[in-house]
Computed example of a mutant assay.
Amino acid sequence: MLINLLLLTCGFAALIFGATKLVDAASSVAVKMGIPNIVIGLTIVAFGTSAPELVVNLFAAVSGSTEMVLGNVLGSNIFNILGILGIASIIYPLTVKTNTTWLEIPLSLLAAVCVLVVAADVFLDGAAQNIISRSEGIILLLFFAIFLVYNLTVAKAGGEEEEMETKDYSTGKAIVFMVLGLAGLIIGGRLIVDSAVGIAEVIGLSERIIGLTVVSVGTSLPELATSVIALRKKNVDIAIGNVVGSNIFNIFLILGVSTTVTPLHLNNGAFFDIFVNIAAGLLLFIFIFTGRGRKLERWEGILLLGLYIAYVSYLVAG
């Protein structure tokens, strides 16, 4: 047990180190190539913060730990809204300002509903079992492509330009850091999946619950760090946009890639998590688009965080 916990911690450290170095190196190269900041932010940086979930899910899918695949995606999205936005809005009330974020919040709710639609084969089609198939994974990836192209088009048309701090690496140094970053992602992802499965076996919890709690929180650390840094700079819009954008990436890109590699067979417990994910997205939608000022107040943050603690407690106790 202690060895597995140590390996899990090392895995998270390697994963976050790899994602950070890969983003820094790729962003440095992109700046030298004259790529606008808004494009770097919406592609390289966004992919970088979602890289931990993607790598872990790929290893889990290939190794047959399919419960962990869906658990990591849903757990990350639930933690992003109830946990990260809950903590962030308690620290500082979050006000939505840009049109992009106004569009992304409903889209993230739509993405959560999409998971239910592609998963409910028994209810919708009268099938023998619920499966997110390879073809449905490809459809999710097509949705992601539409979202990415639309986001880039809107950003360019609006003349938005993000203020970004990028590393000024030489080409050789950037290549070295890219290689190190990829190595960190691969090693970290492998360690996390293997150690998480080992922990689940020792303490008697399912891979689904480990994925929904320990693994999902660990892979969401880049989003948490980004939101906290944004709050320190009073960039509250980035704090919300980072989380909502990550949720869209997680479903359309990461779940899409994972199910394209290995179709997922769902058990009945997964639908509880799917509905919790939808409820979290709906709650965020209601809080932002009702009331005055389009903001998350402190009391709403306390409620979100309290709901997350209750959800995790229910999972562990059950």
Rank of each mutant, 00 (worst) to 15 (best):
E207M: 06
V217C: 02
I238A: 04
L253F: 11
G245F: 02
G256V: 06
S220V: 03
F252C: 04
N247D: 05
A183I: 15
L205P: 13
G181V: 13
N268I: 13
I209C: 06
I186Y: 15
V193R: 12
N277C: 15
V202Y: 12
F287I: 13
A196V: 08
L266H: 11
L191Q: 13
F285I: 14
L224K: 00
L282A: 15
E223S: 10
G256I: 01
I186V: 15
L205Q: 12
V257N: 06
R208A: 13
I209M: 04
I274N: 12
F275T: 10
I238Q: 06
I186S: 12
N268W: 10
I209H: 07
L212G: 03
I209N: 04
A279S: 12
S195T: 10
N268M: 14
R190A: 13
E201C: 02
V276C: 10
L283C: 12
L212W: 08
I238D: 05
K234C: 03
V276A: 14
I210M: 10
D194R: 15
L255D: 00
G281T: 11
I251C: 13
V193I: 02
I274E: 06
I278Q: 03
L224N: 05
G241C: 10
G198Q: 11
L266V: 11
E223L: 00
L284K: 05
S246E: 00
D194K: 15
I203F: 13
F249S: 07
A239N: 04
F287T: 10
G188M: 09
G204R: 00
L283N: 04
T260H: 08
A200T: 01
L182K: 14
V243N: 01
